[in-house]
Structure formats: C-alpha cells, structure tokens
C-alpha cells in the first residue's frame, strides 16, 4: 500500500513537508516516495496529502497504478481540448 511519484513531477516541493510519514524525498530527476514508509496517510488524514496539493495531473499514482489526479481534474482543461490545441500548435 503506497503511492508513487512518476516522471510528470516538476519538483515543486509542495508535497514533501506535508507527508505524515516522511516518505517523500528529493531525488533526481524528480521526487520519490519510499514505498516502505508510505501509509497513504491512513490514520493521519482522510485525504492523501501529497496528492491533495500536487498541481500536476498524472504525477502521482495510487497503489493500483491509477492516476490520483487524472487529466483535466486539476486545471479544468478538458483533455480533448488540450489535445486539439496542442495539435494545432504542432501544425504551425
């Protein structure tokens, strides 16, 4: 039972001080969660702290490997809209 930080992380430091288990540590190229220490905040908070402050969609996975904050859930940008605008920019 542990969360995981993946490559989308931008190293903003917001999560690390919030972790009740000190499971998050600075690493290269991005922050990591020590799976042995992570408790998914069980017993400390009702919501996983790192995933509740993380501003980057898709950067944190739950123990099933699913994105805790999927595309569009934080920015409000519909994923289809994002795709079409990016395609437009590439086409220029």
């Amino acid at each position: 039972m542990a969360l995981q930080i993946i490559s989308a992380c931008v190293n903003c430091w917001a999560c690390a001080p919030l972790c009740p288990s000190q499971a998050i540590y600075e690493a290269s190229p991005h922050f990591l969660i020590d799976p042995k220490k992570c408790t998914e905040c069980d017993g400390d908070f009702t919501e996983t702290q790192c995933a509740s402050i993380c501003p980057i969609e898709g950067a944190i996975l739950n123990s099933q490997g699913m994105e805790v904050n999927p595309a569009g859930s934080l920015t409000g940008i519909p994923p289809e809209k994002w795709q079409s605008v990016m395609a437009e920019i590439r086409a220029r």
Binding site: C12, A14, I53, G76
Partner: peptide
C-alpha cells in the same frame, strides 16, 4: 519558493 497552495487559471506549473 517553488511550492504553491492554490491553482490560478493563468498559471501553468510545468
């Protein structure tokens, strides 16, 4: 100061 505690629609943290 890299961390933020809000999201603004004019900002992109990436």
């Amino acid at each position: 100061a890299p961390a933020c505690n809000i999201q603004c629609h004019y900002c992109n943290r990436k």
